[in-house]
Nucleic acid binder design. Structure first.
Lengths: 229, 229
DNA sequence: GCATGCCAAAATGTATACAAAATGGTGATT
DNA sequence: AATCACCATTTTGTATACATTTTGGCATGC
């Protein structure tokens, strides 16, 4: 019985999870982990057994995930995990670029000293993990840094949108490992926007974060289109 | 290629709507129209009778609307129409500003000549409705213009996000009628970004649309906070 | 008079039953 | 041999039944 809340903290009144809420979290995790592969059909009864719930909460969960865009519901013909469409991913990145820029600028104006210090600490960790050549850890820290910047923007709507887009992109990234050169470039760009953030230069931070996002997009899309074999 | 559109389009192929899909559309319309007032409790069985469906599809619809942020689900304690929180609306507008800027820039680069011509036509209509002093018609055309610009950006992700934010803002706007001076200013700003769009000036169009969005936000928030009595 | 505890009614969460449509395979016809 | 039609199976969509939990009121006690 784990509390798999993506957003809400553990505080507040006794929070009794409902089954469909838990099912949403589990299914989302399964999709993001690639356990349910893009394009694959979602068999309701099979998942019911797997998750230990009946069809009702499972179906409610599927509607939520469909609203998030992670699954597609075809009337009377079942659900499929949304296939990864490079065109769609490109569109998502395009919006991400704008959101990163917004987040960077707002973070400069609204982040606390503690948050900036934490950002520095995470950036050092990113560096260390690059040196160690540990890709998965690097990406984990990378994601955390961006999430923190978004959190520093103090805008729940931005945060929610960002999380949704991140989920979509994450699935694409998992099957598009870009090369070592791009990895180096990514780190350099982090250096760049970190410098801007340190001096609270909102315009520069936003602009550099947007650049970083665009270059990441280019790399991911290139890997998606060309580097399958 | 089925189109699961938020707007009920003309019947394409055999379009077999499911009940919960229809319920989502109806409930969303009711919420946006203010028929279900913000903060009010949503009684399941009552709505079941009203919509002519049983609890199952209605509940599925409520999950979807909760994912969209239009209702809030409190475990074991029913659903409420999400109250209008000026702070949240402010946050939404902040993101909208970035999306408008993005849409304006992309529209300049990707819109077709026909679309720009249509935009001109709608802008003239906007003018006429301002002169006629017909507020509701003005706002309808206004929304249409912005929707068209977003469509010209050729980015379904942007379009979907934009639609979601628009829905939230619309509810706030419906109870915040701003004054005549702002109305005039709004029209002037439309003139401004239309000029930029006509000459395909992406940077200017984006910037002016962002300005327009920010000023609209200011007016709405001011009306929300101060102008209740 | 006010607070507390308990019970009844209502509402939510979940499971299951039923109806209708889609899927897949078999057999008949050309 | 290929195609079409038809039927059984499976699967989805919906309704309803059941189990908990919340809620409101009433009685009891202080």
């Amino acid at each position: 019985m784990d509390t798999v809340n993506t957003v809400k903290a553990a505080t507040g009144p006794i929070r009794r999870e409902t089954l469909h809420h838990g099912a949403v979290a589990e299914l989302r995790a399964m999709i993001l982990a690639g356990e349910l592969r893009p394009g694959s059909r979602v068999a309701e009864v099979q998942l019911c057994g797997q998750l230990g719930v009946s069809r009702t909460p499972l179906r409610e969960a599927l509607r939520v995930l469909a609203a998030e865009g992670l699954v597609e519901l075809r009337p009377r013909r079942g659900a499929v995990v949304t296939p990864i469409d490079p065109v769609e991913i490109g569109a998502v990145f395009e919006v991400m670029e704008a959101l990163e820029a917004l987040a960077g600028g707002l973070a400069c104006r609204r982040g606390t000293a503690e948050e900036f210090a934490e950002l520095d600490r995470l950036h050092a960790q990113l560096h260390a993990r690059f040196e160690a050549g540990d890709r998965p850890s690097y990406f984990a820290t990378n994601r955390l840094i961006h999430a923190r910047i978004v959190a520093m923007a103090r805008n729940p709507s931005l945060e929610a949108s960002y999380a949704g887009f991140t989920a979509k992109i994450l699935r694409a990234r998992s099957l598009a490992n870009y090369d070592a050169e791009r990895w180096r470039g990514s780190l350099d760009e982090h250096e760049g926007f970190m410098a801007a953030l340190r001096r609270r230069d909102a315009a520069a931070a936003g602009s550099l974060l947007a650049d970083h996002s665009r270059r990441t997009a280019d790399a991911v899309l290139q890997a998606l289109n060309g580097g399958s074999e």
